[in-house]
Design a protein around this nucleic acid. Sequence first.
DNA 1: CGCCTCATTGACCTAGTTCAATTTGGGTGG
DNA 2: CCACCCAAATTGAACTAGGTCAATGAGGCG
Lengths: 239, 239
Amino acid sequence: MIEKLIETIKVRHHFSAENEGLLRDRMGETVDFAAGDLIVSEGRRITYSSLLIDGLACRSKDTRQGSRQIMEFHIPGDFVDLHSYPLESLDHDISAITPCRIVKLHHADIDELIERDIRFARIFWFFTMVDASVHREWLVNLGARSGIARVAHLFCELLYRVRVVGLAEGTGFAFPVSQVELGEALGFTPVHTNRLLRELRDRDLATFRAKTVHIHDLAALEELAEFEPGYLYLGRRAG
Amino acid sequence: MIEKLIETIKVRHHFSAENEGLLRDRMGETVDFAAGDLIVSEGRRITYSSLLIDGLACRSKDTRQGSRQIMEFHIPGDFVDLHSYPLESLDHDISAITPCRIVKLHHADIDELIERDIRFARIFWFFTMVDASVHREWLVNLGARSGIARVAHLFCELLYRVRVVGLAEGTGFAFPVSQVELGEALGFTPVHTNRLLRELRDRDLATFRAKTVHIHDLAALEELAEFEPGYLYLGRRAG
DNA sequence: CGCCTCATTGACCTAGTTCAATTTGGGTGG
DNA sequence: CCACCCAAATTGAACTAGGTCAATGAGGCG
């Protein structure tokens, strides 16, 4: 059930079988959410973190004008709100885009894990720092890249992340968002998002159809996006 | 010397005199940088974190087209690269905008502090999570707010942060950036940044002149920016 | 004084928005 | 199986925020 999480740990850290066992034992209840549900809502005090094991979720903030900014997409294997452990409450919403299943990890259990082996603190802190790194890359995306490059960059990022947890099929992957939601992540209107997708298709770089991304020319797409995967910290490292 | 850091801890956590002493004892060498210097450069392996005690610094990434995206400004009292402690290397540059003075806190000493009192881990992790929260708010800024609101939002954020460390003078504060740099943070060209500043001035909301921001009508500016300071996590809380 | 960098302004251009209409495709009831 | 429905995708045309290019102005400093 938490296989995908284990994968995301192991690409980055040495992780003993013993600690893997400890972690498995601490995982709590499973909860299901329907598409559109709030998994965590802004400002609420939180006593557990949610590991996404199935579905697509996102972090977002609403603006007063009724628009919404999506700040990160979450795929199975991601803790969607691990930062609630140090922060205790969140500054934004986490919502289910498709039906989602999460497993709880209570903050008290995180405390225990860290007490048992301080390396757990490193691992969890590291995860939250990867999210921050992704945020920074998205800032570059929104602030400094052209429309077409923004879409390309997002597709590249998702491909790399999805591969780690075994959800890629070659250079294609499921990405069950509407064009409205895609626009909310990229800072564009749905109309313009649609035109950018058409341009990607016309240039034979990537196709987004039926909630699925197919990348036709990954090298060219990365070139267009100036994609450098380093910010995802996917390399195996000492830990 | 680290008074401002202590302030930023104390607005958020209970912090004992004993721990304050421990922290003071661990602070390392002081280093000075000239305006424009890189304090930390992308990809470098890092063994200490830098506490900014004087000057203005920023986190940024360069794009291949030669433009630059600024992702956060740092004022005295901020650790500019505390995330290098869990990450060990950084995905972006940290540079001195004005002459800067930093004090080193070696990662080995952070280890020791945490070993002495686990609450240090919470405090440091918390700091890095506030940076992430700021990143998310900036994502909303770049992705979903109008030009004028973006500038307004940045000015509001800086006022609130600068107040904590005693660097505000009423509703004014020093902000020694050029309009080019301001544009690099907001995702605008210098020309357009200039026009937005003129509009803020014309509407009697705020003035940016001689490297100083003067806010004339804070309530109206916050309203325009949809500024909600919660994301800065400045309220005093249990820790 | 004379640079030199930065701020300011104008005129024109383009990426992205807005509004509105049309098409597509999956699901559902008969 | 088909007719219908509804949400989402697609396209067009007109509009606007922001970019580009280029010239001018203003302050700081050797």
